[in-house]
């Protein structure tokens, strides 16, 4: 397990993407793509980068419940909300202050607000597979 704290930086967007060509805040898409690329490159260069990607709209998601005898499938997301996870970075940062600075840069790059959430570390309560 890594000793450097890890954070999930998430960007949310509308559940249904009706209009192609703009980001969540209306920032022009080619510009946002270029800025996000530059930001991700900076994360790599400075050793913060762990993983990053973007997701297809939640309308393409399938929710699976295998707890019962039969497996239930539902067409759509687990949580029905107007805004859904759109893309994310997983970064390593020495502490929250560093992560917040990165998130502010990422927010400017993608043109949307970013949620910063720490990953569980050794000693924090709860285990991954508990409901």
């Amino acid at each position: 397990m890594s000793l450097v704290p890890r954070y999930l930086l998430s960007v949310y967007g509308p559940a249904e993407r009706t209009e192609l060509g703009t980001s969540t805040s209306g920032k022009a898409m080619p510009q946002a793509t270029a800025d996000v690329g530059a930001f991700t490159e900076r994360l790599r260069r400075d050793g913060h980068f762990v993983f990053a990607d973007g997701l297809e709209p939640v309308t393409t998601a399938t929710t699976v419940d295998g707890q019962g005898e039969r497996t239930f499938l539902t067409d759509g997301p687990y949580l029905v909300t107007e805004e859904q996870l759109d893309s994310f970075w997983v970064v390593e940062a020495a502490d929250l202050d560093v992560a917040l600075v990165l998130a502010a840069e990422g927010s400017r790059a993608c043109g949307g607000a970013i949620e910063v959430r720490p990953f569980r570390t050794e000693g924090s309560e709860g285990t991954l597979l508990q409901p």
């Binding site: 704290p5 020495a94 502490d95 929250l96 202050d97 992560a99 910063v116 720490p118 569980r120 570390t121």
Partner: peptide, 14 residues
């Protein structure tokens, strides 16, 4: 503890 809020005086810029 969980979010690793640092225990230090902030950087000069902040």
């Amino acid at each position: 503890k969980a979010a690793h809020i640092p225990y230090r005086v902030p950087w000069a810029a902040d």
